[in-house]
């Protein structure tokens, strides 16, 4: 007598795989946000209670007015004129500190603009990065002369 054996099904059930895959795709599409993950590095110096004294004549002061106007060493100047003005001074003394001092009411973007410009020293043929300093209001009140 011939026995009719039930052969087990050897297929992997994949009918729901597409549902799961598209569910995952929809989840990732909904939760993914393409955000800005780049910025300008801004290394902070160590908070020193007794910072080295810098003579006023030794540094260059870049003041930023609330309307975005720039005053460099008491003279109004355009953004792209700063480094050409600094270049001869920095060639004599590459460590010359350049102090950025925005007015407290100056929009933040103007400060970033100036900082970004001074970081592009290579484009102006300088051999060393500019020694940029951005003192905070507390430091100005404590140490400014």
């Amino acid at each position: 007598m011939r026995l009719d054996r039930d052969r087990p099904d050897d297929e992997i059930p994949t009918s729901s795989m597409a549902d799961i895959a598209f569910l995952l795709i929809v989840f990732f599409m909904v939760t993914t946000t393409f955000t800005a993950t780049r910025g300008l590095d801004f290394a902070l110096p160590e908070d020193d209670d007794d910072p080295p004294v810098v003579e006023k004549e030794e540094s260059v002061l870049v003041e930023i007015m609330p309307n975005g106007e720039l005053i460099v060493d008491q003279d109004p100047m355009g953004l792209h004129e700063i480094i050409p003005y600094l270049k001869p001074k920095l060639e004599r003394n590459p460590k010359k500190p350049v102090i950025i001092r925005p007015d407290i009411a100056t929009p933040y973007r103007f400060m970033v603009q100036v900082y970004d410009e001074l970081r592009q020293w290579e484009d102006y043929g300088l051999e060393q990065p500019i020694n940029i300093s951005v003192p905070t209001q507390r430091e100005i009140q404590s140490f400014w002369y």
Binding site: A36, G39, L40, D41, L44, E46, D47, Y115, D116
Partner: peptide, 9 residues
């Protein structure tokens, strides 16, 4: 005493 700061832009 934070040393490394990035200004997001």
């Amino acid at each position: 005493k934070v040393r490394d700061v990035y200004l997001l832009s």
